[in-house]
Write a protein that binds this DNA or RNA. Structure first.
Length: 856
RNA sequence: GGGCGUUUAGCUCAGCUGGUAGAGCGCCGCCCUUACAAGGCGGAGGUCGCAGGUUCGAGGCCUGCAGCGCCCACCA
């Protein structure tokens, strides 16, 4: 303990305490504890691709308050931080930061150094060089992130930090993959998949977003055959006419019923395609009959699959039409030449040319009508997704398995959601799944598949008989490691092997954060101590990805939930009520606010956002937080500063003191109940309100007596009672504030107590009640209200608060007057009142007769 | 199209299982009071989105409607 400083200040508290907490191991996890003493938290590993913003601060601070509460309740938190550094987000950052791009055909250059500044044209580098740059940059970013979190005061144990590209994570991820495969829960399939033509990788359903996209509706004539009339269709993608395999209408549609089974010919190419019926065709859309292409959108895929139509793919993986026309029986002699004119063009370029050709040929009915319509994008992408047929790895997720889907919905109900209504997002996601989880990505910086494929003597790769790594070898990199029974010289050779070239989607690894942090299989004792975990705090926007996939993996691997509870935090909105996000460019960076107001002040703002509620960023709230922190310093200085000759050890004898402690016990009950409900915001609000009342009323009421200057109750016993109560109250209030404002509470604690407030037990209401004896809170309440009336009278007469009062008459209900009688001495001292009378009445009224002039 | 949430003072939000409307900011006024002037004390300000209903009593429950936000969906 250091004693009370002359001039308490918030400046420098973050650096001071962050350092001491680390040095003292304040938040170090004690793994010797039993499972039921541990509170295990599956902390979101932030994506390390730039800077943290207020949205991150918001959610992580809230989770930290819950963890701090649990720690004070006597639980031992297992509270690690991770960095989600693998994946496309990191690749993009590296590409921009260093001005490079990965070209996997190049060989490793050990002398490669990135340029000081990124150049105009991206420098092609080999995959190993690219991965090195990714590792280098993420390490820098992670240090900056850690510093930021320490400054925010997160009570994580930094010795437990993991990364999703780290060796431990790779081993867990590959092991889990092998086990999924062994149980038939992971499989590979060659199928049409949504494809990002810029990143040149497949993407999963969870990464899609619909965007309103400007396009045009084209009305196009297909030629009737055998004397039947022409058919008009509408499409936004005329460039896919060469990929057309059928027209489709609803089976009940009178207009087309007679033509099901007959054929029409495509414009420009003269390919004969059938008219087919399917219930997904909607009569009131366009002309009621649609062109099925391979593949224009996901409905095309459904039609193609269910109606067993042929494949005529034209879209290449680079987003350009492939060089050769598809296999077709084109009757138009110009078909081949027309197609080759389109080959190599992007979808947009091809569309323009096709429209010209259609117009010339007379197949275009009217002019294209501009429309905007929802189009599927990769959430990080800038061009519409295409659909191309590729071989990919999938994990079953219930999309094609009603039984599994049902079980996963049940898992969602087993999980306790805070707030509860967030569960509906999970359920609507599970119930809307339409494809299994596509986990392979045609990218470079990620966890590889521990898989090779045999190459037949003919040179054909046999994907059906993958060569799997043994678990003892993990992690492996199939591009440099060799499968058992082969040697490196056989790579890519007939009779040899090839490595799986893909990496896993980042979620395929980060869905295993409980297993990674708990060192599943690598440290069985630790794992059994922390798994299943207690809490998953996270944002609502990643319920469909992170939360769902983690539940899925745990269900497959352990037959249980990964955690018992999840706390979903809301969005941070800018003052115009728009979501703050990097892409919108309306983010504010936390550092500036840490600098200006201090971490406790920023945390105070975050704690004001109720669980799951979107909250506006509000500098005003941060200022209020700073004011509260300063008030805590000053009130504590007073409380501890009045300790004079009389020690604060005697019994609590005075009615006002007992009544205050009774009220405080009720506050402890309320705050505890709020935290029990994961409602840190309610806990803070109640504590804060009590604290301001404590400062305004109790401190004023007790001040003279605590100084030992009271004439009415000037005994040492009454003074000791005041001092004892002040310390009991301060100790309680600091502990109630500690989860929210860890720095200022720790600072004050250190003035007069040993150890960290954050390892102190949560306040005990029954102990406070024993000090209060049977005195109720009413005396404290009435005393405060009467004092308020006296102040009001002084204000109304424009007098100083120090103005003397000749006489006060309190009119009030009998029980309230009785309570007042117990504390009348303190009220008179605080109000400088010479005489105080009471009159029974229905409600409180106070007549105040001020002295003519203030006593000298 | 389906679902979830939300609508309370000028602003940002509390108001837990129904019992005579709350806080902070902003605004106005007073006070340099020995914990605190980057402060303290006090004041003004709301028919709780709209329309019905249940109840002795509704901001809180029920029905309908509207605005806003979000989630989900096979939108030619």
């Amino acid at each position: 303990m250091t004693g009370v400083p002359e001039k308490p200040s918030l400046e420098g508290l973050e650096a001071k305490w962050a350092q001491r907490w680390e040095a003292g191991g304040t938040y170090r996890f004690d793994r010797s504890k039993a499972r039921d003493e541990i509170y295990a938290v599956d902390t979101p590993p932030p994506t390390v691709s730039g800077s943290l913003h207020m949205g991150s601060v918001f959610g992580y601070a809230q989770a930290d308050a819950i963890v701090r509460y649990q720690r004070m309740r006597g639980k031992e938190p297992f509270y690690p931080m991770g960095w989600d550094d693998n994946g496309l987000a990191t690749e993009r950052r590296v590409q921009n930061y260093y001005g490079v791009r990965c070209d996997p055909t190049l060989h490793h250059d050990p002398d490669f150094r990135p340029p000081e500044k990124p150049g105009k044209h991206a420098i092609p580098v080999s995959r190993p060089n690219f991965v090195e740059l990714c590792e280098k940059l993420t390490e820098i970013d992670e240090q900056a992130f850690e510093e930021m979190w320490r400054r925010l005061g997160l009570s994580v144990d930094w010795s437990l930090t993991y990364t999703t590209i780290g060796e431990g994570a790779q081993r867990v991820s590959q092991r889990a993959f092998l086990r999924l495969f062994a149980r038939g829960e992971a499989y590979q399939s060659e199928a049409p998949t949504l494809w990002d033509v810029d990143d040149r990788t497949a993407v999963a359903q969870a990464e899609l977003e619909d965007r309103e996209h400007a396009g045009a509706s084209h009305r196009i004539r297909f030629g009737g055959t055998d004397g039947a009339g022409d058919v008009l269709i509408e499409t936004t993608r005329p460039e896919l006419i060469p990929a057309c395999v059928a027209l489709v209408a609803h089976p009940d549609d009178e207009r087309y019923r007679d033509r099901f089974g007959s054929f029409v010919t495509t414009p420009l190419f003269g390919v004969s395609v059938p008219i087919v019926a399917h219930h997904l065709a909607e009569p009131d859309k366009g002309t009621g009959i649609a062109m099925i292409c391979t593949f224009g959108d996901v409905t095309d895929v459904v039609w193609w699959r269910e109606l067993q139509l042929p494949t005529r793919s034209v879209m290449g993986r680079d987003g350009r039409l492939v060089a050769e026309p598809p296999e077709w029986d084109a009757t138009d002699p110009e078909a081949g030449a027309r197609y080759r004119e389109l080959a190599g063009k992007t979808a947009k370029q091809a569309r323009e040319r096709v429209v010209e050709l259609l117009r010339e040929s007379g197949a275009l009915e009217g002019e294209p009508q501009p429309i905007t319509h929802p189009v599927k994008f990769y959430e990080r992408g800038s061009r519409p997704l295409e659909i191309v047929t590729t071989r990919q790895w999938y994990i079953r997720n219930g999309a094609h398995d009603p039984e599994l889907r049902k079980v996963l919905v049940e898992r969602g109900r087993e999980l306790r959601w805070h707030p509860p209504h967030m569960r509906s997002r999970y359920e609507s996601w599970v119930e809307g799944l339409n494809t299994d989880w596509l986990i392979s990505r045609q990218r470079f910086f990620g966890v590889t598949f521990p898989v090779w494929y045999p190459v037949a003597d003919t040179g054909q790769v046999d994907y059906e008989s993958p060569l799997l790594a043994r678990e003892e070898r993990l992690p492996v990199d199939p591009s440099s490691d060799v499968p058992d029974g082969y040697d490196e010289s056989q790579r890519g050779q007939p009779g040899g092997f090839v490595g799986d070239p893909d990496v896993m989607d980042t979620w395929a690894t980060s869905s295993l954060t409980p297993q990674i942090a708990g060192r599943w299989e690598d440290d069985p004792e630790l794992f059994s101590g922390v798994f299943p975990m207690d809490l998953r705090p996270q944002g609502g926007e990643i319920i469909r990805t992170w939360l769902f996939s983690t539940v899925l993996r745990s269900h497959f691997e352990h037959g249980s939930l990964p955690w018992s509870d999840t706390a979903i935090n809301g969005w941070v909105l800018d003052p115009d009520r728009k979501k703050m996000s990097k892409s919108k460019g309306n983010v504010v960076t936390p550092v500036e606010y840490f600098d200006r107001f201090g971490s406790d002040a920023v945390r105070y703002w975050a704690m004001n956002g109720s669980p799951g509620v979107d909250t506006a960023f509000d500098e005003g709230q941060i200022k209020v937080g700073r004011r509260l922190a300063i008030k805590i310093l000053n009130a504590s200085k007073f409380t501890l500063g009045v300790r004079g000759t009389v020690a604060a050890t005697g019994p609590v004898t005075e009615a006002l003191d007992r009544s205050l402690l009774c009220a405080l016990a009720e506050l402890v009950d309320e705050a505890t109940a709020a935290f029990h409900d994961y409602d840190y915001a309610r806990a803070l609000k109640q504590t804060e309100r009590f604290f301001w009342g404590f400062c305004d009323d109790y401190l004023e009421l007790v001040k003279q007596r605590a100084y030992g200057a009271s004439s009415a109750a000037g005994s040492d016993g009454a003074t000791a009672s005041a001092r004892r109560t002040l310390e009991l109250a301060l100790g309680t209030l600091l502990r109630l504030f500690a989860p929210h404002l860890p720095f200022v509470t720790e600072e004050v604690w250190s003035w007069w107590r040993e150890g960290s407030v954050h390892r102190e037990p949560w306040p005990d209401a029954s102990e406070l009640r024993s000090h209060a004896a049977d005195t109720g809170r009413l005396a404290y309440v009435v005393a405060g209200e009467v004092l308020g009336e006296i102040r009001k009278a002084k204000t109304a007469q424009q007098r100083s608060m120090r103005a003397d009062v000749d006489n006060v008459v309190v009119h009030d209900a009998p029980e309230r007057l009785a309570a007042l009688a117990l504390v009348a001495g303190d009220v008179r001292e605080a109000g400088r009142v010479r005489a105080l009378e009471t009159v029974e009445a229905g409600e409180l009224r106070v007549d105040v007769e001020l002295a003519e002039s203030d006593a000298a």
